[in-house]
Write a protein that binds this DNA or RNA. Sequence first.
RNA 1: UCCCCUGUAGCUCAGCCGGUAGAGCGGGUGGCUGUUAACCACUAGGUCGGCAGUUCGAGUCUGUCCGGGGGAGCCA
Length: 462
Amino acid sequence: MKKQSIADILQLKGEKQELTAYGWVRTSRDSKAFGFVEMNDGSVMSNLQVFVDKEVSAFKDIMPKLTTGTSLRVRGVLVESPGGKQNVELKASEIEILGSAPAEDYPLQKKRHSLEFLREIAHLRPRTNTFGAVTRVRNALSFAVHRFFQEQGFLYINTPIITGSDCEGAGEMFQVTTLPLDNVPKSDGKVDYSQDFFGKQTSLTVSGQLNGEIFACALGNIYTFGPTFRAEHSNTSRHLAEFWMIEPEMAFCDINGNMDTAEAFLKYIINYTLKHCAEDMDFFNKWVDKGRVDMLEKIVNSTFTRTSYTEAISILEKAPRDFEYPVKWGIDLQSEHEKYLTEEVFNGPVILSDYPRDIKAFYMKQNDDHKTVRAMDVLVPRIGEIIGGSERENDLHKLKARIKELGLREEDYWWYLELRKYGSVPHSGFGLGFERMVQFVTGMQNIRDVIPFPRAYQSADF
RNA sequence: UCCCCUGUAGCUCAGCCGGUAGAGCGGGUGGCUGUUAACCACUAGGUCGGCAGUUCGAGUCUGUCCGGGGGAGCCA
């Protein structure tokens, strides 16, 4: 017989069927002649209430041992529950303790803990309601990402984690080396990377985009979904040194198609999660951020506002309030500006496009005005920028000129340039930080609480 | 990297003008015949983050180091 999860069991009506449940004690209450144990196995937010009365053999001995955290196998009959808070309960006939959890020092109590405290016990925090819900929502979002792209005919490709190109330019990189750090081989005073594992200097990837373009320019529509590493000394609730990023890349697609995909994509994965994680989402709505579900539903049913960077600047200049960073055309938008636009002006997601070329990456397609590039950012309330993307420069000469202008070395980009030399096509793509998406959906304030094992500056425990 | 806040019992926190510590929860013990943030009674827990200084006397004031949080920058 297949082992039934608590999710399965709670679906059953109380038809007096005999079954066996497995899980960990969340809380127990007892009196002289009976006790209640609530157990959870992570399959759903809800606990299964187990009723233990004195008929159960060794009731007196076992009841005090059923402390929070104890793992159990309970055999019994599933019956309708007389109590008001659950439909069914398991009337135990046999309880086996699989692993005890001494109450004197088990860190998780049947009370709310601060997220900061839970971060210190990351090996136990998955056993809490909050992290169970985060984990299930993260899983649903992850599956929805694949499902959206698969339904749209995108191919999932794996771009390298170790990269030999130092031309990604999206942030500080972690170096990968097997050279002995206490005695680095040198030649002419410089590190001799020819003796390193790959025979050259290598790092962990900061983006799969450039590699993704290779496959888009052969197979049409592709996406990546993999780990990304940035060695920035960022210390915020929105940054990690190791995070997961989704990067679709589409051939024969301009910036408008790019925006269409980004908008449809966000709506799809939000909608999927609302539908498949209703109980978890209720939990976030109630305990983490009231109104979050309404806001998400509104987004699913809305049309994202689209406007240009130039227009956004003009709105900000007219704003009836002062910003810490003064607004003028040409500046990069600050968090405060993005939040003002999305939270106060448009009250929902907004897609800005056509940014000044000087504040954007070299590979973005240059507009005819010679001032702007076809970049687009999707801004959402609370988070700010959640998606950044662009139509890529597909004109070989313009791209070369831009590389030169920025003082980059053409030879570093030889293969990237050849995509434009041979059969170049208009193409576009964007990047979505997966953890920021999980934050946005759950309302969790700190990014370190939406990834199982956060890696950040000066922090890599567990 | 910069700015601000913070560190007191296992957890969450209070502690006023400087006079060597308190609550709730959790734990332990006992009680309770349908509980569900269970309830009632009793009880045990503390080099007040570390180091130095001011002072007759420091949880409280000063310096410094370490940890945590928030914001900024960088970005996803």
